[in-house]
Simulated assay, not measured.
Amino acid sequence: MTVRAKICGIRSRKDLEMVVSAGADAVGFISGTTHYSEDALSADAAAELCAATPSFVNRVLVTHLEDAHAILDLADRVGVDTIQVHGLVDRDTLRAVHSAAHGRTIVRAVHVTGADAAARAREIAADCDAILLDSRTADRLGGTGRTHDWSVSARIVHELALIGRPVILAGGLNADNVDHAIGAVHPFGVDVNSGVETDTGDKDFTACAGFVKTAHESDRGRPVPVPRRRAPELQPTGSRR
């Protein structure tokens, strides 16, 4: 099964057109932030880019917001297909978002800062449609450009496969290391932001295309988790108008 590729941190029409041309399965718009991100957008800017996204590409809201109503209101305003809960929310908040998602898939970020990430992923897996494993620093919840311990990520993939919960790998990925990362972790999908940018923070077409091509050609024939519901943020929905 082909590994899905998401490119996050889309902040302009040029970025959007570039990553769509590169073949990305999903695009991420960062809005509603509590920690630093160069790619943060206003709700209106994110909504404009969402509306310009072709129907075969999945649109993902990546947000740090920690209140369920605020998260859902922002998702409605932007008009996305998937909500990536990337903030420091508790399980009750995640459950509330998931139960009121109205057909949207919910992806919960887990920061792999040690072996205890496996327990956190197991605990919240029932309250979302997929887990995204990312790196973090003291002031950043994503976009760190740093990898984490892939052996922990691989263990999480193995354990969550038993309940049919897909895992998406992020954190320090780029076109040069994504093949190795896939071979080490066997994720359902991979997610990149800073690893495909120029020095000015704009998306680089060659890097984006290389990342997507490598992801799509890697891991062919290897088993990956089969979700209970439709595949989450990395599959095109074909349902938008």
Rank of each mutant, 00 (worst) to 15 (best):
A22P: 01
A24W: 00
D25R: 01
D25Q: 03
D25V: 02
A26W: 02
A26S: 03
V27N: 05
V27Q: 05
G28R: 06
F29T: 10
I30V: 15
I30S: 01
G32W: 07
G32E: 08
T33M: 05
T33C: 04
T33I: 07
T33E: 04
T34N: 13
T34E: 15
T34R: 06
H35M: 07
Y36I: 04
Y36N: 08
S37Y: 11
E38G: 15
D39T: 13
A40P: 15
L41T: 03
S42T: 15
S42D: 08
A43E: 03
A43D: 04
A43L: 10
D44L: 02
D44K: 05
A45G: 10
A46C: 04
A46V: 01
E48K: 14
E48A: 12
L49M: 11
L49E: 11
L49H: 10
C50I: 11
A51F: 00
A51E: 10
A52N: 01
A52G: 01
A52F: 07
T53Q: 07
P54K: 00
P54Q: 04
P54L: 00
S55V: 12
S55W: 10
F56C: 06
F56H: 09
F56A: 08
V57D: 03
V57Y: 08
V57T: 02
N58G: 02
N58I: 00
N58V: 03
L61V: 04
V62L: 08
V62H: 04
V62D: 01
V62A: 03
V62Q: 04
T63I: 05
H64S: 06
L65R: 03
E66N: 12
E66Y: 12
E66G: 04
D67G: 09
D67P: 00
A68H: 10
A68Y: 12
A70M: 09
A70Y: 13
A70V: 10
A70I: 06
A70K: 12
I71Q: 03
L72Y: 08
D73L: 06
D73Q: 15
L74K: 10
L74Q: 06
L74I: 03
L74N: 06
A75Q: 11
A75V: 09
A75F: 11
V78C: 09
V78D: 14
V78G: 10
G79N: 12
G79V: 11
G79D: 05
G79H: 08
V80L: 01
V80K: 12
D81G: 05
D81Y: 13
T82K: 05
T82R: 05
I83N: 07
I83S: 10
I83Q: 09
Q84C: 05
Q84I: 05
Q84W: 14
V85M: 09
H86Y: 13
H86L: 00
H86N: 06
G87I: 10
L88G: 13
V89W: 13
V89H: 12
D90Y: 14
R91F: 02
D92F: 11
D92Q: 11
T93A: 13
T93M: 10
T93F: 12
T93K: 00
T93N: 01
L94P: 06
L94C: 09
L94I: 07
R95T: 14
R95S: 14
R95W: 15
R95Y: 13
A96C: 07
A96V: 04
A96N: 11
A96T: 15
A96F: 09
H98V: 05
H98M: 00
S99G: 04
S99Q: 14
S99L: 08
S99V: 07
S99N: 14
S99C: 06
A100P: 00
A100I: 01
